[in-house]
Design a protein around this nucleic acid. Structure first.
Lengths: 242, 242
DNA sequence: CTCAAGCATAAACATATGTGAGTGCGGCTA
DNA sequence: TAGCCGCACTCACATATGTTTATGCTTGAG
């Protein structure tokens, strides 16, 4: 294959080996690729998709709007992530998915996923695993949101995003491109933009990060991890039989 | 069968029909039943279980402890819930599971689960669905925690627990038994016990609930739903082909 | 080259929720 | 029957974070 490796395969192979047949099944599962511009919806709350979206390039967020227009982002997605694999079985979207930047998105028909569950038990487990890691991240965010200070929470999120981006080859040394506004960070952490700004400045003043434009640089990984009480267990980065 | 229906089957059949063979496979998947006393750990953080725990009776919570001893509960479980089905594929527990009351727990060996994924594709999808609903609940909690007031968040939680208990036959009219302390509610909502107390009193004063001892009564479902901005979509209560 | 838009930043002030230290009730247990 | 313990509940006070409003970059459109 001359084409760049599918980032989903990159991500799954981090967790367990895939056979050639499984990789082929994944590659051929993609029915078409489309581009969604920044700030557009990729899937809407209430939709009943008959395919799931795999993010090939760009950043996306799952979100929900509550009464007075406030928004909560419940997941941030990087290349290689499925945005709504869960819609295969949950059927109705209980939240929307938004492109934070221009996104390249592959469609995987639910009929194909069903066929995979019939014919490839191990690959099925790997897709299931993929959604379980999403769930583990949700739990970690709950803990951070409920019991960490705003500063610690932000440090935690930065640690996670840095690792996840590195995993799919999106880090250059200690730097990653993170094209996300402070307002979006606020919606992710459950904070106001003003407080996001305060907290980022604190992390900068402490010499933990640099964040200029979209370029986020980790200046002191160990201390950042300590401040954010970050341990990577929940990301299941180990390669083992699944 | 003279034995009372397995609450897991009750729960799954709400979402899609199970064949007799699938039900039998589930029933025989249970290797043994044990009892765990209140306040004891059912699974510990760091464990690598070779079986998953199905809650037959009682209340349990997934939790995580952060530095200064603070605790966050990331999931509350009622009969019929799997407590750590995810450990089948995630392998290492990134959080603990605690019995809130005396619990009857069935063990389902991971080897049996693997066999199910090999032989029963539809049942596999139903188990996968089960973990996806856990994930949907996590996202809902994130939204409530990040963007709702403490009062609304509490109202939301009460709506959810009432529905989930009703679903497995644990409601008598508008009343459910909810044996959970205010401190535990605080660890669930990310609040102090003092504030939990304030918030519960407000809901009582508003005539929305009664909460005496363990008996929680919904006095005004519609207004409670409004206050908590509650919609049940995320619980996937529809029966459909999956 | 200019303007407008979006974004980061700032300061003053407001408030929801946390903290610490207690009281008192009800139910076990000896 | 007494005493203890866990738990719900209170009050006074502390503070992390939100709100409002404004300023000035930077960048892209025209």
């Amino acid at each position: 294959m001359t084409r760049m490796t599918n980032p989903l395969i990159l991500k799954l192979e981090q967790r367990d080996q895939l056979s050639d047949a499984e990789k082929r099944a994944l590659e051929t599962a993609i029915s078409r690729v489309r581009v969604v511009e920044a700030d557009e919806d990729i899937v809407r709350e209430g939709d009943r998709p008959n395919e799931s979206s795999l993010l090939l390039d760009g950043f996306a967020a799952r979100y929900k709007i509550v009464s007075n227009g406030r928004r909560q982002i419940s997941a941030l997605h990087v290349p290689g992530d499925f945005l709504d694999l869960h819609s295969f079985l949950l059927k109705t979207m209980d939240h929307g998915v938004l492109a934070l930047t221009t996104c390249r998105i592959a469609a995987v028909p639910h009929a194909t996923l069903e066929k995979i569950t019939d014919e490839y038990p191990h690959l099925t487990r790997m897709l299931w695993l993929n959604t379980l890691i999403d769930g583990a991240i949700h739990r970690e965010w709950l803990t951070a949101m409920g019991r960490l200070s705003a500063t610690a929470h932000m440090a935690h999120l930065i640690c996670e995003l840095y690792l996840r981006l590195k995993l799919v080859g999106r880090a250059e040394g200690d730097t990653v491109q993170l094209p996300i506004t402070q307002a979006e960070l606020g919606d992710t952490l459950g904070l106001s933009t003003v407080h996001v700004n305060r907290v980022l400045q604190e992390l900068r003043k402490e010499g933990l990060i640099r964040f200029q434009g979209d370029a986020l640089t980790i200046l002191d990984w160990e201390r950042l991890k300590t401040v954010g009480e970050f341990t990577s267990t929940y990301l299941s980065l180990q390669n083992e039989d699944r």
